Simulated assay, not measured.
Amino acid sequence: MPAINEIDEMPRKELHVFYVLDTSGSMTGVPIAALNTAMEECTVALKDLAKKNADAKLKIAVLEFSTGAKWVTYNGPESLDDEFEWEHLSAGGVTDIGAALRELDIKLSRNGFLKSMTGALMPVIIFMTDGYPTDEYAAALAELRKNRWYTSSTKIGFAIGDDADAAIISSIVGNSEAVIKTSDLELFKRLMKFVTVRASMLASSSRTTSSFVNGSAIVQDAIDDNSLPANIIANLGNNSKSSQDDDANWDNNNNWDDDDNW
């Protein structure tokens, strides 16, 4: 019988943290600098979490959108090891949210970014914008909602500044109570790091591919732990509260496609 220290480590499922980030022209100057600082702090925190995490192997995938959308991590989700460094984004162009949603839909697949040999947990998706769509987004969102990786993911939105369309962000993340709305960029940086770490901890400790962590609960944790007023939640009324909980409760007859098995 092999010694305990000779037994191979059990393979860990992968947890992918997706960031979908607005880098349009309205982000020029202080906002894009705040976003880059926030992402630097998030990646440092995720690196620390990755080293301590015995439940899942953390990876990061970053999609920026302005005029069109492109992956910053273009080779696929990257491991959060010591070699990973955040490369600053620049701002310019319009706000093609529809293009971002279509690209996200393509990669949320076993044929895309979720091709882990050990399996993947439900991803974390953090969506951030300071504006509103300049392209057609409704059809792209409707198609994305058919993607069961997306519907069962932990989704959190950030509406930054007075011009951010919180209602659209709510429709994207599935629940107005999972959207943080603020013009305070220092607060944005703090909360971006908080929700990143909290969502990643909860999602990775689930130990299953079917567990669901509600983004609104993460946002409420952020408010409670940071002693913040509840009005930073994008409270849009009952008609804007979508079915994020329902998204995760699939009927037993809804089977996964053969090419996207767990």
Rank of each mutant, 00 (worst) to 15 (best):
I4G: 08
N5C: 02
Y19N: 02
L21N: 07
S24P: 01
G25T: 04
M27N: 02
G29P: 05
A34P: 03
N36Y: 07
N36I: 11
E41K: 04
C42G: 10
T43C: 07
D48T: 15
D48Y: 11
K52N: 05
A56N: 07
K59M: 14
L80R: 14
D82F: 11
E83F: 10
F84M: 03
G93Y: 02
D96F: 11
I97N: 05
L101V: 05
R110V: 06
N111L: 00
G112T: 03
F113D: 13
L114M: 09
F127G: 02
T129R: 02
P133C: 01
A140N: 07
L141H: 04
K146D: 09
S152R: 12
S153A: 15
I156D: 00
E177K: 09
E177Y: 07
V179P: 07
V179D: 01
D184S: 00
L185A: 01
E186T: 02
F188C: 00
R190I: 01
R190V: 01
R190F: 00
F194D: 14
A199W: 12
S204T: 13
T208C: 02
T209D: 04
S211H: 10
F212A: 08
V213D: 06
Q220D: 12
N226V: 11
S227C: 11
P229H: 13
I232K: 06
I233Q: 11
N235P: 05
G237P: 11
G237T: 07
G237S: 00
Q244C: 08
Q244N: 12
N249H: 10
W250A: 04
D251G: 08
D260Y: 09
